[in-house]
Design a protein around this nucleic acid. Sequence first.
DNA 1: CAATCATATCAGCAGATAATGATATGTTAA
DNA 2: TTAACATATCATTATCTGCTGATATGATTG
Lengths: 118, 118
Amino acid sequence: MLIQAQAQALALKAKLFRGFSDPSRLAILDVLRDKQLTVTEIVTLTRLSQSNASNHLGCLRDCGLVRKEQQGRYVRYRLSDPRIATMLSLSEEVLADVAKGVYQCTRYECTEKRATDS
Amino acid sequence: MLIQAQAQALALKAKLFRGFSDPSRLAILDVLRDKQLTVTEIVTLTRLSQSNASNHLGCLRDCGLVRKEQQGRYVRYRLSDPRIATMLSLSEEVLADVAKGVYQCTRYECTEKRATDS
DNA sequence: CAATCATATCAGCAGATAATGATATGTTAA
DNA sequence: TTAACATATCATTATCTGCTGATATGATTG
């Protein structure tokens, strides 16, 4: 469908964005925005189940958004790059302006609620 | 799991990012980066099927990333905000630095290929 | 070593998503 | 109005994703 090199680059970028594209993962990124936290702290703050949080942390890690660091029996997570936080802020700015459109979207083929235009 | 207002905000933000989180949609956003295009032009440039492109355009529209404008019998699409392009650029910068980690990630529970740490 | 705490992984399920081919809608022009 | 073109929608299918509960691994302390 797309030439190979391009497709590879797009898949990579899509993967990065997929890290951001789930409310649970955004909740995790949010609490990691300005500080490092252990898994237990993250679980407490986000109220995700331990297993769920661990899965999402694995995903975020694999997507390159966070890094882990073993500290004694704790594992401490932090954003892997300050620009991750920038992207979050930028998305909030954009949302503030285009939110109305986003409210309509419930799923991929947002047929039922799709706005009539624009 | 999260309090209602927070959950709403996170879901909204997740939806915005979900617009970016698919290679076909990124291909579309890419060709719209600096110009407005009709659906046919988009289909030609991205080599997506017409129906697939239309679905993705609907999704992008509902996520607030693009806007459509009817022009005669054509529909012209453009990015809904210049900061959308900024987010794309920013993601490319981040990727350039953390790409190695992302290469490992094939899906949510990227078990098979998960790097041993970091 | 045994107990405990912290984290990761597994199996399985329900629902979401992306693709396709076919069809429908809408717009313009002959 | 009919034909032709542009775009959207539908139905279907295969796959992916996120969640849960249970279990496993790993680290630390007594």
